[in-house]
Design a protein around this nucleic acid. Structure first.
Lengths: 208, 208
DNA sequence: TCATCCAGTTAACAACTGTTCTCTGGAATT
DNA sequence: AATTCCAGAGAACAGTTGTTAACTGGATGA
């Protein structure tokens, strides 16, 4: 059910996407709070005033970038944590999936890591609410596991947050090794795997 | 052995500290990469050119702030992780210490959390190297514990990094609840405590 | 006491910023 | 075919930015 957009709407979405792409590129070497409106329009090749047709401010643009970077990631997270295979299998699968994602969308990952605690409040809030959603989804998957028998809701959510934070830490570690020899990337893989393994062990002995 | 500084050097250090304080205050609502030199001098109440007598650039100032925020924290971390009391006792002690520190130096903590993945490379590097030092120190303390028998150096460092990252996550959580009712702060305390407990359980079953 | 030093000042520079108002030309609607 | 709509352009605004050069006056060391 794809409703064909008019020529006008299509062009508008195209320029809007150009804004997002240009901003993301510029944000590899600075923070959102120093990103200028004119800077972005210059990179897109458009008049400064055109910016206002799409965004109220650079903060607004930032919120849109959060949606682009995290919005489409929810199904992926769900299926990754889903209960197929044994613990060790799931861990290596998760770490590899993070590595692939960082390689495929480095700018998105960098943006999220940078602005999660960055200087623009609405963007921080947008990221925070997405991460809370992730944690809730992970919790829902964890609850399906037979190992979760006897776990309180609070404890499940606690573990889910631990996993989500660990995911972000691992992603930003991979980011740093993007231009490093694969020996370094292997080291990060091993580290993240063992950290997840330790958490997994703690999980299986929690009820004691 | 305190060598009395001349009037001149004393004044210089005083204004330098005024720069650091003013910058830290301004950085509560923005990132370092958007902090202007004139903005800082205006806040200090001094001519723009005076800035160059102390720092080459705002990035340089940022590195100095990293030292101020983390440099004096090493002994505290050492004694916190040190092996006195049982596991549960150490955990509650650590969480409370983090809470106190965030309350006492919120701006420092915010600065570190913000600029750890921020847009200024030299500052990121400075923070990274300090965190590596923390991890090494935590590792050294962990090694003293009888529970560390049979642990490889790599595994000890892996656990140490897990603790350091967890420390930062907890600190930034407390930061968000600074102006919230103490009910919220209590919730964060409980969450952080249980996460550390789970890690601790994983640690004690690691050798299996 | 006198010459040196140097933290902070003053003035000026070209370049840049966000935002407003007015205009245009092609798509969309009637 | 005639009218409305609206994404983007153009020009102008008052303020801001980092950096340079030449200066002042009080602390410093001979």
């Amino acid at each position: 059910m794809s409703h064909t957009l008019g020529i006008r709407q299509a062009q508008k979405q195209k320029t809007r996407q150009a804004f997002l792409d240009a901003a993301l590129a510029l944000l590899e070497e600075q923070s959102l709070s120093s990103l200028g409106l004119r800077e972005v329009t210059r990179a897109v090749g458009v008049a400064p005033t055109a910016f206002y047709r799409h965004f109220r401010s650079t903060a607004d643009l930032g919120v849109a970038l959060v949606d682009e970077a995290l919005g489409s990631l929810h199904p992926m997270v769900r299926t990754t944590v889903s209960t197929t295979g044994d613990s060790e299998e799931r861990i290596t699968r998760a770490v590899e999936l993070i590595a692939r994602h960082v390689e495929a969308y480095p700018a998105h990952v960098r943006f999220i890591a940078r602005e999660r605690h960055g200087g623009v409040q609405p963007v921080r809030e947008a990221i925070r609410s997405q991460l809370v959603r992730f944690a809730e989804e992970v919790k829902a998957e964890l609850a399906k596991d037979p190992e979760a028998a006897g776990w309180s809701d609070d404890d499940l959510l606690m573990l889910a947050h631990l996993y989500v934070d660990q995911m972000l830490i691992t992603a930003s570690l991979f980011l740093e090794t993007l231009e490093a020899p694969r020996e370094e990337r292997e080291r990060v893989t091993q580290l993240a795997t063992r950290q997840l393994r330790l958490i997994s062990i703690g999980r299986s002995h929690w009820r004691d």
